[in-house]
Design a protein around this nucleic acid. Sequence first.
RNA 1: GGAGGGGUGGCAGAGUGGUCAAAUGCAACGGACUGUAAAUCCGUCGACGUUAGUCUACGAAGGUUCAAAUCCUUCCCCCUCCA
Length: 398
Amino acid sequence: MHKQDFSSTPVGWVVEMTARNQSLMLKFDLLKTHNKARLGKLHTKHGVVNTPAFMPVGTCGTVKAMLPESVAAAGAEILLGNTYHLMLRPGEDLVAKMGGLHKFMNWDKPILTDSGGFQVMSLSGIRKLTEEGVTFKSHVDGKKFFLSPERSMEIQHKLDSNITMCLDECTPFPATHKEAEKSMQMSMRWARRSKDAFVDRDGYGLFGIQQGSVYQDLRQISADKLKEIGFDGYALGGLAVGEGQKQMFEVLDYAPDMLPEDKPRYLMGVGRPDDIVGAVLRGIDMFDCVMPTRSGRTAQAFTKYGALNIRNARHREDNRPVEEGCDCPLCKSYTRAYIHHLQKCNEVLAIMLLTWHNVAYYERLMKGLREAIAGDSLDSFVAQFYQDQKKGDINEQN
RNA sequence: GGAGGGGUGGCAGAGUGGUCAAAUGCAACGGACUGUAAAUCCGUCGACGUUAGUCUACGAAGGUUCAAAUCCUUCCCCCUCCA
């Protein structure tokens, strides 16, 4: 039902690596590789996602401060929703009643939902963890909510999520080898239960999540277990939780290689632009992060020449756009001086425009990476990226 | 003309003898943000000095006191009510 059109890709000699003799329902075409970097296409019921892909985060059924139309216009082909938050409000049954999350929020492209696994870590103060699952004391009204792998699958199914994530425990950092192993092993048991409870549908899929903190042997055990169960895609979890880029890259130097080559690899929660570039070079296909949207609300603008704190006094009389050549509404029509002014006045428009710009920046970066892989120019693209990012300070001096 | 209230750091506003270079909020300046409890959080915010510390400061000028933003005297200015 999702016919591949290889003739439209920039490369005519596409390598088709997708295993066809399987029952899984989410199709991934690995089109090309350059060293470890990969170019691909992920086919879902709601459309195609070109990888490497960045997914804006829309936790509560909205990418904060953006219309779904704008998210699409900024170049996003898929976005995130969140099981925990939508379970609390408005509840998965209501979303289902309203026709599913796509219809409810007016986004007809693919949606990936996180399972609540991140909240197991981020809301550790208001939850209780057992082998059976996790009980949250709602941060909204204190009501108790129980989330098990089975419940998480049920909720994500009712939300009509294209990509369901296994319920896991995002292992906090730092963790001792013993702690990381215990946590990872439970996540693997939960992965088994998630798979058993997941309902297969055409154009929908389930991703497993590798854990193991920064320990190579644990990452291997986790990967082996996930492969044994079998998933439509494989995520790397428990990274970008405080270990720093150097240590994260050390893990990424080996962890993606432990996962099946013909399935998408998703690095959860990452990251800054340079994190993403480094991870693509290490074989990651999918990313999500609150960075562009949250930063849009906290006055940080990402640009080719590095990040700008738009609140800084030096922008007060700067009549240049935030980023020369960017075609987002902020850069097309407004100056740094104006967005600085809006930000200083706490105007919502500052948040809207900066968020849009940041999402557009991220999506442009991903497009650049995809085109560079397709056009055999990834090395020079990446070299230029780092050179431009470093140039930031000089660019700011005029 | 009569009665009363008040002048504190960029602003608002605590403080009424030593623990005050002066609470708190705002503004200003800078930083952080990674599967979103975030339009959030953190730091700095009289001057000089890295620190110890020194100096200048609560309308102005005098005074009382070991010690004054705080008490007294005079002056200047603002506000409210009554005529």
